[in-house]
Design a protein around this nucleic acid. Structure first.
Length: 330
DNA sequence: TAGGCCATCTGGTCCT
DNA sequence: AGGACCAGATGGCCTA
């Protein structure tokens, strides 16, 4: 639990039990005047703004001639209503906190399977997502070509679009000297297959950064030979350039919901009615739209099912790329 | 001190 | 009606 969170929780508890609403009501005009927006107590400001807007509408309808009020009477903000509103707001805030914590937990889980997970130097949210994207892309290249790229190329792929500190962290974690990568990034002009899968040789250097026991570069690659799902990456992120693959002609697995996978019928076809746990669709990355409608990805993404458990509960949280590799190769 | 990152609060919108 | 999701606003913390 972070310091900020603890503090915020204390504050939340405080406002939940103290008469903060009254204070806020008193200070709301100051807050609005300050920046034209609801302040930290926007709840109260918003409430009163709502009333203001209702009044404005009514005035317009009156054409400015009749001061007589029409329509439903404005509900008075009684103390009881205020109390109910406050309770609702407090509950909503708690839910929102929980939701965001869940989101952050998921992000933490994602960090753990990134090839440069470090407890001491945590990747930011945005960098985690970027690195994840690159990681998927890099792995898809491996799946597609069936070859293990050189370490340097792999790092270059991982670091595309990442900030310099993050790039150095990745390089360090992958046993590639950060200095080397730094120079390369300056040289980079037209990223493409040639540069990404270049044949430069490089020497492993002492990174000078915390180096998790992730082993050599090769251990980060999944030695699987299913059809690639690079087209998904291309469709999603618009890169990399010119690394096209022949379209996958094989059978596709059914759409996969976030929460469930699919079991197979006796004839081997997918049983759409029976979601079940512990059947990974790892490289398939089959996606369904928010409402179960297939996305455009589904026709572009080859499906390949690996009967292993990829659910997070199934393996230790410290498992990272190489460990996953070992799992896959079992 | 500025800028990046983050957690939280909030109101709006959509869905069940 | 209530919950989930989202984006804007805000303030705190940290680092260069």
């Amino acid at each position: 639990m972070t310091k900020t969170y603890t503090k915020a929780k204390e504050m939340a508890e405080l406002v939940g039990t103290q008469g903060w609403m009254d204070d806020a009501l008193n200070s709301k005009d100051e807050l609005k005047a300050e920046n034209g927006r609801p302040g930290p107590f926007g709840l109260v400001a918003g409430l009163n703004e709502e009333h203001d807007s209702i009044e404005e509408e009514e005035e317009e309808e009156d054409d400015g001639e009749k001061p007589k009020r029409r329509g439903p009477k404005k509900k008075k903000m009684t103390k009881a209503r205020l109390e109910r509103f406050r309770a609702r707001r407090v509950k909503a805030n708690a839910r929102e906190r929980t939701r965001m914590h869940g989101l952050n937990d998921a992000l933490d889980n994602l960090r753990r399977v990134m090839p440069c997970y470090s407890k001491t130097q945590k990747l930011s949210k945005i960098e985690t997502l970027r690195l994840a994207r690159n990681y998927i892309w890099a792995l898809s290249e491996v799946l597609e070509t069936g070859q293990t790229p050189e370490g340097k190329s792999f790092v270059e792929m991982l670091c595309k679009g990442l900030s310099q500190p993050t790039s150095n962290l990745v390089a360090g974690c992958l046993q590639l000297g950060p200095q080397t990568l730094f120079l390369e990034k300056h040289e980079e002009k037209t990223p493409g297959c040639e540069s990404a899968i270049s044949s430069h040789s490089f020497t492993y250097q002492s990174p000078g950064l915390p180096s998790p026991p992730y082993g050599s570069m090769e251990t980060h690659l999944l030695h699987l030979k299913p059809p690639a799902f690079k087209s998904l990456v291309d469709a999603s992120f618009g890169n990399p350039p010119d690394c096209t693959t022949p379209p996958y002609e094989g059978p596709l697995t059914p759409p996969l919901s976030i929460s469930g996978n699919f079991s197979l019928k006796q004839d081997g076809s997918p049983d759409l009615d029976k979601p079940y746990a512990f059947m990974a669709h790892y490289p398939s990355v089959s996606l369904a739209g928010a409402h179960g409608h297939p996305t455009h990805f589904q026709n572009a993404v080859p499906r390949y099912e690996i009967p292993i458990d990829m659910s997070y509960e199934s393996y230790p949280h410290h498992v990272a790329g190489p460990q996953l590799n070992a799992i896959f190769n079992e």
